[in-house]
Design a protein around this nucleic acid. Structure first.
Lengths: 352, 352
DNA sequence: GGAGTTCATCGTAGCGCTATGATACGAAAA
DNA sequence: TTTTCGTATCATAGCGCTACGATGAACTCC
């Protein structure tokens, strides 16, 4: 078949003609070109007030909603930030994501959420789909990722922020604090209260590397002063819950005779330990001092109120947002400012 | 200037040539056409095993990541579900979102998250941007929305699921339970325990309409048996926290002499009340019985363990996912199945 | 008055993919 | 042998928008 006949029987195939209102419709009604409408939408100051008003009127008359998918394709970068956290059920990450979402939304960026359930393979899959959106940035939790994940992200050229942990080599940028130092702070605090027979109660530490690092920071600091013999690290394979706290306390008491202080990887665990002490009539802090981590909602109000370490998930969210936004505005921060230490604060209350 | 010269000085403008690996590159390497690659990616069974293998090899060699933005534009519907909740810090919604995200991710759908902070205007803005993504579905919380929000969503033709509440006219589909009935259940339970001088402790009830409905359901049921005189509804303008629970309990005791039972709009509030009782030496449940709502992590473990109502945020998430997925597969459910009642369960523990 | 300089606006080529209908090629049926 | 049918593959027209460069008109400056 020759080109002629091929051309001949080419029929203009019709496509599901969306009756979506397009920018073209707005342009026609406002008597300007589509480019002007696009320009108005992106930088209103660049079009004349007269035209601007006309366009605004047309938009509201037609109920025009811009198609960000098309915009993203044309601009080769969508107004999307992909956030991957281990679990959104975790109050820490919920707080960070919440703050981050607010800050980014204020600049017209959407948040796409994924959770990895502490699995590196799952994280890798999430990163893969995340990149498929040509996102403005990708936010990951922690510094431990599969080599493939790092490769993918590096190759993509997309700004990457790793949050909730510093102290290693970030892929691109990092915002967080040092987990070993958190453990050490807890240890020093217990030591300062004269405790020498202590334990660290953690949950899911095979997968939650950050919790594991808090534990080893704790053990190291204790070892320096009191010797390792009197420091146990107890792990609960399941999630960090109040119930896990009860179980862990009992195991700790078995393992460390005359236990007089515990640090918990999470305030929920600490609360569980507190409840268990109450149930067994163990005086807190007289007999056992308790330090938590997270400064959750209830920590100031429980009985006794909980000494804990506040990591400021909120501040992390804000800093991540700042990093992303300055990154998008052009100059990506270089050098030292690529890693931000948000620190941690020990809040002393009645439980120690 | 005539058309000729216009044509003449048209230079092929170069555009920031992304060196992104495209489907075309894969096609070239695999010696097939781009359509075949696309087809393989969408329905692998439709291409021959030989071609499929060749394509798979090319994809992995090049590290090809499909561009979902382009795909979404071409297919006129992106693989995105937009979820809008009042607050992700709230454990209820965190649970639902988490479940929903997992279920949808399994089908290749992404979740875009927004939170409205209980503001209808903010919700409207979120819906507007959500629609700009041509999402596969939009998920909202509750049945109360601004008229403009309803109009936008109806006009868009996008499947809409409203969750966490039923008992009104949904925009499209709804999954949840009746909040007045939850209040009534709590009331009946307290009445069955012989309590007659009761209060409902709520937070943020101006904005949180669902909490307000639980309160009025509670008051109504109490009024039917014990008369309204002995039932107070106390509201805390701030968020539903443990601390609010303490404050609210004190106000309730002032307002209702010989208070002997409380229902709380949230387990955190109940926990605060429990702590306050402990602090003041008020016996629970002997003197005051406490019913919560939510069955949060700590509710089974606290002292005394908390009688509460479980709304199953998890189940809601699953059902919403099911509705969305069947909707996408073609036939949108009609009639009664557009509203799913996930019910609620009262879990009796030691606090009553 | 002519040459520059702004400034607002416009025309249109892609962005990378999917959907549509066409087509090539065997196998089965006539 | 011819016709029909099915299957695998292909070519290409958009999807709706943004970015690029062009075009005039209005000003400014010698």
């Amino acid at each position: 078949m020759d080109a002629g006949s091929r051309l001949q029987n080419r029929t203009p195939r019709k496509r599901r003609k969306m009756q979506r209102v397009t920018m073209m419709d707005v342009a026609k009604l406002a008597q300007v070109s589509p480019s002007t409408v696009s320009l108005y939408l992106r930088k209103p100051a660049a079009v004349s007030p007269a035209a601007g008003q006309e366009i605004a009127r047309a938009i509201s008359t037609l109920g025009y909603v811009p198609n960000l998918v098309a915009g993203g394709l044309a601009a080769a970068s969508s107004k999307v930030v992909s956030i991957i956290v281990p679990s959104i059920r975790n109050a820490f990450f919920a707080e960070t994501v919440s703050t981050l979402q607010s800050e980014l939304a204020a600049e017209g960026l959407q948040v796409i959420l994924g959770h990895s359930e502490y699995g590196e393979d799952q994280e890798e899959a999430l990163v893969r789909t995340a990149l498929a959106w040509a996102p403005a940035a990708v936010v990951l939790t922690g510094l431990s990722h599969s080599p493939e994940t790092r490769k993918l992200l590096r190759a993509s050229g997309v700004p990457v922020v790793e949050m909730w942990e510093i102290g290693g080599e970030p892929i691109d940028m990092a915002v967080g604090f040092s987990h070993p130092q958190v453990g050490a702070s807890a240890a020093r605090h217990l030591l300062s209260k004269g405790r020498r027979r202590v334990a660290f109660l953690g949950a899911r530490m095979q997968e939650d590397h950050r919790a594991a690092k808090r534990a080893s920071g704790f053990a190291e600091e204790i070892g320096r002063t009191a010797g390792t013999a009197s420091c146990a690290i107890i792990n609960h394979p399941g999630a960090a819950t109040v119930e896990a706290g009860s179980l862990l306390l009992n195991r700790a008491m078995q393992q460390v005779p005359n236990l007089d202080g515990i640090a918990c990887s999470n305030d929920l665990v600490a609360l569980g330990a507190l409840f268990e002490c109450q149930r067994q009539g163990i005086a807190v802090p007289d007999k056992i001092a308790v330090v938590g981590f997270g400064d959750l909602d209830f920590s100031a109000s429980c009985i006794p109120s909980l000494t804990t370490i506040r990591p400021s998930g909120d501040l992390i969210g804000k800093e991540v947002a700042r990093l992303i936004l300055t990154g998008i505005d052009g100059g990506r921060p270089a050098g030292a400012s690529r890693v931000i230490d948000t620190g941690h604060v020990l809040i002393e209350r009645r439980s120690t």
